[in-house]
Design a protein around this nucleic acid. Structure first.
Length: 492
RNA sequence: GGUUCCGUGGCCGAGUGGCUAGGCAGUGCUCUGCAAAAGCAUCUACAUCAGUUCGAAUCUGAUCGGAACCUCCA
């Protein structure tokens, strides 16, 4: 199984696919921006986390020792950059009349449940912003010491103009400060503390009412929006690490600011490969909390949502996402989900067949090509839709072998079984869902009896009894599948 | 207004300068007491207009349409 081509990653920094070369092989540092835990994560969030789950899984499969860091933002980003900026978590806490940390705990728990439902592997480290206040203050101090920040009134702002004299502010997002200047000048009026419109807070003075605040050299306050990721990524992965991921919407300003902060503090560009996952859309517009068009995972699973005809299982949803490239938007629709549901079922059925395929002396099919293609598509910037297409080619092979139209040798079968196990379960992270509902041994045994009775009825040409059993089971959401001489069943 | 990206068959979605993924739906067939399920086969495409080229859906330009970011958001 030789990989003729190395892994390529689309680097947002260069806008090109680049050969992936780890900074310190076999180790790889992977950082992904996690959720702000002030409300439930929605499906769009899940998609991004899934993207980096695939990255994590595939790099691990390739033999890298990956340290995966995904943060929890538990001090709310300021609602806006004005002086009366408020904190999302605190706002929510007031709304729900509970402690801010209770909010944090509640939605962190919810996030963990969700992520588990979709079979995402937990990160190696899941640091919280509040757990790294000291480091954040230290970073502010370093930036100040280097002259790339200034203090006003207990708040500290990053000096973008100064930074831009020496470095390229906008290298990631492709933005030029001059381009934005004209548009924003109007909104600069009023008592803004910032010297320059593009400056951003790295430490923000807290008002008297603020509950969550920390002492600092500049008085009580809270860390700025972008600081935590800079601090936690470099703390656990080093001043320069391999991959930083996040949603497309974080590219600017969040990630741009992260670069500026790290360079401003330590003079080092922190990230070698930036990866950005694209958005999940509904009717063509981005799914987002503020637009009110978001789906909560449990709504999708239960089907309890006005835009849904029915519910879809977590693995169906996972499969649905993986059928699109992570760099493309995915539009959400019932039809697409239904297609994914059936396709996923077809794939899983074939994998079940694969376990007991008839063996022959030699193979009439070329599984090496299949395996090589699959590896190569994953190496091509984690191209899961193409990989899945190859997996379906394999499905066709498996079914043909099962029908006796093609043959496979014992050695090849072992290889093929391992291949599907690796790709479907380990890399794509899918898991069988039927086995869950069949895990009930009692039900399984009872069904065996029922099917036996029905077979007997069929042998006696007692069609009415046979059909009665079939219809009654149907109303219990159990589908009987008749084949030549055996019957199987499936739970809907 | 600025920046970036996209426009593929009934639907979802890959990809490439010539050999036209894959899934779903449709159609035909096989299996079958019937049905379902399952399997096999098969059809329809590259927004519009111009240009480059022996050849473009793939490159260039224009037009139309859509999206994201520029303000918290994965």
């Amino acid at each position: 199984m030789s990989e003729s081509k190395p892994l390529y990653i689309y680097n947002s920094l260069s806008g090109k696919k680049e050969v992936f070369e780890a900074i310190n092989p076999p180790f790889v540092g992977l950082y992904s921006c996690g959720p702000t835990v002030y409300s439930d994560v929605h499906l769009g969030n899940v998609r991004t986390f899934l993207t980096f789950d695939i990255v994590y899984r595939y790099l691990s499969y390739l033999g890298y020792n990956v340290r995966y860091v995904r943060n929890i933002t538990d001090v709310g980003h300021l609602l806006d950059d004005s002086d009366d900026g408020d904190d999302k978590i605190e706002t929510r806490a007031r709304l729900e009349k509970i402690e801010p940390m209770e909010i944090v705990q509640k939605y962190t728990n919810g996030f963990h449940d969700t992520v588990k439902t979709f079979n995402l592997i937990p990160p190696s480290i899941e640091p919280t912003a509040t757990g790294h206040i000291i480091e954040q203050i230290e970073m502010v101090e370093r930036i100040l010491a280097n002259g790339y920040a200034y203090e006003v009134n207990g708040s500290v702002y990053f000096d973008v103009k100064k930074y831009a004299e020496k470095y390229n502010y906008g290298e990631l997002s492709g933005r030029k400060i001059e381009d934005q200047l004209e548009q924003t000048r109007d909104s600069l009026e009023g008592g803004n503390e910032k010297r320059f419109f593009a400056d951003f807070a790295i430490w923000k003075k807290a008002s008297k009412e603020t509950i969550m605040k920390w002492p600092s050299p500049w008085g009580d306050g809270v860390p700025g929006w972008h600081l935590e990721c800079s601090v936690m990524s470099t703390k656990y992965l080093g001043q320069q690490f391999d991959i930083h991921g996040g949603g497309m919407d974080l590219k600017f300003p969040h990630h741009e600011c992260e670069i500026a902060q790290s360079v401003g503090a330590d003079g080092v560009n922190p990230v070698k490969y930036w990866m950005h996952g694209n958005m999940l859309t509904v009717n063509g517009t981005k799914m987002s909390k503020s637009l009110g068009n978001s789906f909560l995972p449990h709504e999708l699973i239960s089907g309890d949502h006005e835009l849904l005809d029915k519910g879809y299982s977590p693995m169906t949803i996972r499969f649905f996402f993986l059928q699109a490239n992570y760099r493309s938007t995915v539009d959400f629709s019932n039809e697409a989900l239904q297609a994914a549901e059936k396709g996923f079922k077809r794939l899983m059925n074939a994998i079940e067949l694969l376990q007991n395929l008839p063996k022959s002396d030699k193979s009439s099919i070329d599984i090496n090509k299949l395996i090589q293609n699959s590896n190569q598509s994953m190496n091509d910037d984690f191209n899961t839709p193409v990989t899945i297409a190859y997996l379906f080619d394999g499905v066709k092979m498996i079914n043909s072998i099962n029908d006796g139209k093609e043959e496979i040798s014992e050695a090849d079968l072992t290889v093929l079984q391992k291949f599907y196990n690796d790709f479907v379960f380990n890399i794509l992270g899918l898991q069988s869902e039927t086995s869950d509902s069949k895990s009930n041994n009692v039900l399984e045994n009872v069904m065996d009896v029922v099917l036996k009775l029905r077979s007997q009825a069929k042998e006696n040409k007692d069609w009415s009894t046979a059909d009665l059993i079939r219809d009654e089971l149907k109303s219990l959401n159990i589908t009987i599948k008749d084949s030549k001489d055996t019957s199987t069943w499936d739970y809907e």
